[in-house]
Design a protein around this nucleic acid. Structure first.
Lengths: 170, 170
DNA sequence: TAGTTATGCAGTAATATTTTCCAATTGAAT
DNA sequence: ATTCAATTGGAAAATATTACTGCATAACTA
């Protein structure tokens, strides 16, 4: 829970972005690009001392604006260069089937992203793999084993043109 | 440049993943989940002292396995909750047109990811926005202004089922 | 094969930096 | 003037960084 101008904010009533001031937004923008910047460096950018920067970051973490800090790896060097976009439609659209599918997807390491879509196709999956052969195995032994799969349409990524990890801020 | 068993590795001849030992892989796995882990904590996980862990991380950074460290923000809290998948086909497929398109895409903040695809559709874009109205404006004033757009197919994300930032390691 | 050398890694210690926390001060709003 | 929140500055603890020592293994030589 957090108090701002006498109002209470928390999980049920999150502090909206409008209540973040320009300093908060700049902080988020900087940390999104380089989470290893020291409080001192950030303070210099913001023309503040270390303490308020430190406290603002803690606040942004506690309020959930910052979810986690991660190292971004080179997918080619670590041996997983292949990306496939896979569009799946369900045969039946019961709540039960859908939930089962969503659960099973969580367990598949190859599935990096999965979105429930509006429109013809039900789910869009971004799959990450070591090789094209692995995609064959993935579809054959994992994806097609899931119940209730209707149609399945795979397209391969030839080249990653852009991959931004952050969001535009402010 | 880096030497391993008397062999030279570098940009042109990157050290392949097979030459990372189990400790390196565990390090990458951990840092991918939480880049804020201290060297001490990592050392405890690996049953090593601080120095080798410290040096391994520096090596993984210098060799490019670790590209950067970023803070992951909550897209809803920062006011950009909408995701749209947009599939674009070019009218003509000259190298010149394609390159121009790829360049312009880099400048559009809303485009978080863009892939050159095999198959019917040329590009798949993941667009991040404040609101559905903003998508209207994005298509009307930005995307459709690009030369050589043939067809354009938009589907909206109803729910993010899974969004993993890292890759499976080892 | 045995002895020697070289190399890279693990571990230790000393130092520099950063993080974290707290009390006091400033500044703005009522 | 009073109150509340944010900022400042500083002190203590933790961590990062560097330099150095010793150990094990691989490579080389006779």
């Amino acid at each position: 829970m957090y108090v701002w101008n006498g109002k209470f904010f928390g999980a049920l009533n999150p502090l909206p972005v409008e209540h973040l001031d320009e300093l908060d937004l700049t902080l988020l923008r900087l940390l999104q690009q380089d989470a290893k910047m020291t409080t001192k460096e950030l303070a210099a950018e913001l023309n503040l001392t270390i303490s308020p920067v430190y406290e603002r970051i803690r606040r942004l973490e506690n309020l959930g604006y910052i979810r986690q800090y991660v190292a971004v790896l080179d997918k080619t060097l670590i041996g997983r260069p292949i990306t496939v976009i896979c569009q799946v439609s369900m045969r039946y659209h019961n709540e039960e089937f859908i939930e089962k599918f969503e659960q099973k997807i969580q367990e598949l390491d190859e599935v990096q992203e999965c979105y429930h879509m509006a429109g013809q196709v039900d789910f869009l999956l971004k799959i990450n793999l070591k090789s094209l052969e692995d995609y064959h195995d993935f579809v054959k032994y994992k994806l097609s084993k899931l119940d209730n799969i209707g149609t399945l349409n795979s397209t391969f990524v030839l080249k990653e043109i852009k991959h931004t990890l952050g969001y535009p801020i402010g």
